[in-house]
Design a protein around this nucleic acid. Structure first.
Lengths: 191, 191
DNA sequence: TCCGTGATAGACGGATCGGTCTAAGACCCC
DNA sequence: GGGGTCTTAGACCGATCCGTCTATCACGGA
């Protein structure tokens, strides 16, 4: 008992933070646990005390990223009353994210690229994140009073995914703004 | 001299084909050259006779994929006279691709996920492919007579990227159709 | 037939992979 | 201060990583 707040808890957090950064920079297979441990200044047994395997660490990293993403997203759209404003605020939130110098693309997209098997725990974490994100878009789309809110949500979701991908791969700074402009057109056409 | 058409040429092609399949299924770092060689039934020296390194093999794989993609794409849009039809034919081509049981997402997106450094040869091959694809979209968009063809092209490009990603990650069969519907709306709004 | 050239098989190299184990350390309550 | 518990450093494990080397093999020309 009484493990939270002690060194153990700190070590766990530090492992996740360090692994998050390294995975984001170099990829999951490319980063070995030895590198994570030496970067974090921790010993192997510390890692294997908190996680049964590297795979579990990866899932924990994705869960932390997911939690942070949901909080940021919720804060970004909280102030907006109607569905249309919420949808457009989502694009603003994504644009702010892509403008961050630390932006290196979606960690979930990268994870999906390296772990393609449907039943893999890492892939499941990715799908969970994507399903939540689509749900957010769908809820806001429904609030616009669009004739077919699921259609509108699906279209805007694709724009978001494409914009994040393009911003990450090509470094295109205008991608998200273009996506938002397209979103406005689609929202207008959907009412 | 006189190497083409001999065993050497066949070995090279077989290496590329085998590597393409394995990289597509499992990722680039996850697949070692030993696995490629044992799958292809070839020896190490054969690989290192044709390629200086694994990295060179990866680039060759991407180049082959790029060449095949361009040919398929060109054939898909060749028959269509006007820009709008060409643009919509692109979505049809992508949908046909995603419906193929062998579809496992864009190999270029996966490569970008694993090789993020700008100056890396693999990343350069990815950027080359993306630049070409965007150029195709832009050319067709210009032929529609849209007021701002670059804006239209950028929007449709994001839809394509998002649709391919969504189809790959979530297995969503409707993604490309949704993207095409959105594209029709955007094209109509751009004239 | 014999020779020379170039491709091949597979052993081998050091490095690193994910993961385990042991021995010592740090800390707790009494 | 002593005894028990939890955490840690780092040696160690077999497997695999990418790449090299050597010894053999197949084949074309004279």
């Amino acid at each position: 008992m009484a493990q939270r707040g002690t060194k153990r808890g700190n070590a766990r957090l530090q492992l996740i933070d360090t692994a998050l950064d390294l995975f984001d920079r170099h990829g999951f297979h490319a980063v070995g646990i030895d590198k994570i441990l030496s970067t974090a200044g921790l010993a192997k047994m510390t890692l294997y005390h908190h996680f049964a395997s590297k795979e579990e660490l990866i899932v924990a990293v994705l869960e932390k990223r997911d939690t942070a993403f949901r909080a940021d997203f919720a804060a970004a759209i909280a102030d907006d009353a109607d569905g249309r404003a919420k949808l457009l605020a989502m694009f603003d939130a994504i644009e702010a994210w892509t403008r961050d110098p630390a932006f290196r693309g979606s960690l979930f997209d990268k994870a999906a690229a390296e772990y393609g098997e449907k039943e893999h725990p890492v892939k499941k974490a990715v799908l969970s994140h994507k399903a939540w994100l689509f749900g957010e878009v769908r809820r806001a789309a429904a609030a616009t009073g669009a004739a077919d809110p699921v259609k509108l949500a699906a279209e805007l979701f694709l724009l978001m995914e494409g914009a994040v991908l393009a911003a990450a791969v090509t470094g295109d700074r205008t991608a998200v703004r273009r996506a938002k402009a397209a979103a406005e057109t689609l929202i207008a056409a959907a009412s």
